[in-house]
Design a protein around this nucleic acid. Structure first.
Length: 473
DNA sequence: AATCCACAGGAAGATTAGGATA
DNA sequence: TATCCTAATCTTCCTGTGGATT
């Protein structure tokens, strides 16, 4: 039996793994458009902000240094998308008019120390320089060989002899050799800084450095990076740099050195949250390309917009909701996405969030939460701190973990409360003391499954004996 | 009115972990 | 590589408290 037969057979009896899934009418036309990573070419309701940015950054195309920009706005208000859009436009325009102008994007959530920021920037510019050098070397080599044949080609160039061209090539290659990639770790910070400095200053250009989630950088490693970057301009001779900071936190400049604060915040642009109507426009706009025509019932988009508007106008959330609703509809073989799918999607996203939060909890918090779950499963309501602590102690002994004090455990319970995993209220029971009463505010089964998937908690077998019947009243 | 339960939660010092620095 | 710093975590010790009970 050769391959063709296999394929034919699979087609004929229609029991293949993917057949069922493929058979239904597809709902999505292009799902990518709904992903958070997608940068749209049009950003509805952000024209003001985009124009402001453009107005500030045009000076880069005139070879002047643009003012530093600080962009504020909550998550999902289109900050990053707008900034990336503007920088794409800036770079393409700069190529059109042949002005040396470059934008570098750094996400400070990922690259969160001064060293890594500088190293990453340095390497990017070294790479760019090497490309520039390679191009020139090639051009000069050609010129050189032509000049050997016919010295007249040098007329009108900066060179008088073929040897001059040759020595220029040697010079450039020496430059290229000198540029050393910055390793991920190991160098002193000031060496990385000067490498970066030299790389940027290698030739004439205006550089815009986009620092996304700049508040995370400041939070984790202070304002040194920003201070160094902002004073670079006074020492650079060939190039200019401009910083574009993007922040979720409106108050993060409070922690900055006043000098950094004033130089960084030369221009400030605020992205207000979207309201439900604006979200509806955005969703509609994307849905047109993302979904097949008539794949959505009329109330789907308004509903997504309404849900997301409750969550502080987060467009990312709205798109996530719409995409998840579409996926759920697709999975259930539905012809269209309905309101019901959106509600399911809302639940699914919430569950995913809880699962993620619980999964990444520190072990001690997990044990505390597990104690709460055990009590809850045994039908105990209004669980109080003492009970949790007793179960917690025995769980710790069982899995051979350190036992924290009750004082600490009350703090851990408060943290779980803040994360919305349990809800705890302080109540006084008169003669019988004063305690926190709590209950689980997430689904029991799913949460327990997540906890048991932890390597430390996994081997708790037969947990029931931990909880004795409670004889109250 | 006085008592007293069963903790809450503040203050301050100890311990630890991770990262910077020499 | 050793050690030094800092921030986070944890403990110890403590005072405070709402209201049923005495």
């Amino acid at each position: 039996m050769d391959l063709d037969d296999v394929v034919l057979e699979a087609e004929s009896d229609n029991t293949g793994l993917f057949d069922d899934l493929l058979s239904g009418e597809p709902i999505f036309e292009n799902k990518e458009v709904l992903r958070p990573s997608y940068t749209p070419h049009e950003l509805p309701h952000r024209t003001d902000q985009i124009n402001q940015m453009a107005t500030i950054l045009v000076s880069a195309l005139r070879g002047e240094t643009p003012s530093n920009i600080l962009i504020y706005g909550k998550t999902g208000t289109g900050k990053t998308a707008s900034a990336k859009f503007v920088s794409q436009e800036l770079e393409s325009t700069s190529q059109k008019y042949d002005v040396p102008c470059e934008v570098e994007y750094i996400n400070c959530e990922v690259t969160d120390t001064q060293y890594r920021v500088l190293a990453q920037l340095a390497n990017k510019f070294i790479e760019k320089n090497e490309r520039v050098i390679a191009d020139r070397v090639e051009a000069y080599r050609e010129l050189h060989s032509n000049a050997l044949d016919d010295p007249a080609v040098l007329d009108g160039t900066e060179f008088s002899t073929a040897e001059a061209v040759e020595s220029r090539v040697a010079e450039l290659e020496a430059d290229a050799d000198e540029m050393e990639e910055v390793p991920m770790t190991g160098w002193p910070t000031d060496r990385v800084y000067s490498t970066f400095f030299d790389a940027v200053d290698y030739h004439e250009r205006v550089v815009v450095i986009m620092l996304d989630e700049i508040d995370k950088l400041v939070e984790k490693s202070g304002d040194d990076t920003l201070y160094n970057l902002s004073r670079m301009n006074s020492e650079l001779t060939n190039s200019r740099i401009s910083i574009m900071g993007i922040s979720n936190d409106l108050k993060f400049t409070d922690f900055l050195d006043p000098r950094v604060k004033s130089s960084l915040g030369e221009e400030e642009i605020v992205f207000p949250p979207y309201d439900a109507n604006q979200l509806r426009d955005i969703l509609q706009h994307r849905a047109d390309t993302a979904f097949k025509t008539d794949a959505l019932t009329d109330d789907v988009i308004p509903l997504c917009a309404a849900f997301a508007a409750q969550e502080h106008g987060d467009a990312r959330r709205a798109l996530d909701l719409l995409r998840t609703a579409g996926e759920l509809a697709e999975r259930s073989q539905a012809e269209t996405v309905s309101e019901e799918h959106v509600r399911q999607a809302q639940d699914k996203i919430e569950l995913d969030r809880v699962v993620e939060v619980v999964r990444t909890l520190p072990t001690q918090s997990k044990i505390v939460l597990f104690a709460v779950i055990l009590l809850e499963k045994n039908g105990v309501h209004n669980i109080n701190t003492g009970e949790v602590f007793n179960i917690y102690k025995r769980l710790c002994e069982e899995i051979d973990a350190d036992v924290l004090t009750q004082r600490r455990v009350t703090d851990l319970i408060s943290e779980l409360d803040m994360l919305g995993i349990v809800n705890a209220v302080v109540v006084s029971k008169g003669r019988y003391g004063r305690t926190k009463e709590m209950g689980l505010s997430v689904p029991v089964e799913e949460t327990e499954a997540v906890l048991l998937s932890d390597s430390r908690l996994g081997d708790i077998e037969n947990a029931q004996p931990f909880v004795q019947a409670r004889f109250d009243n």
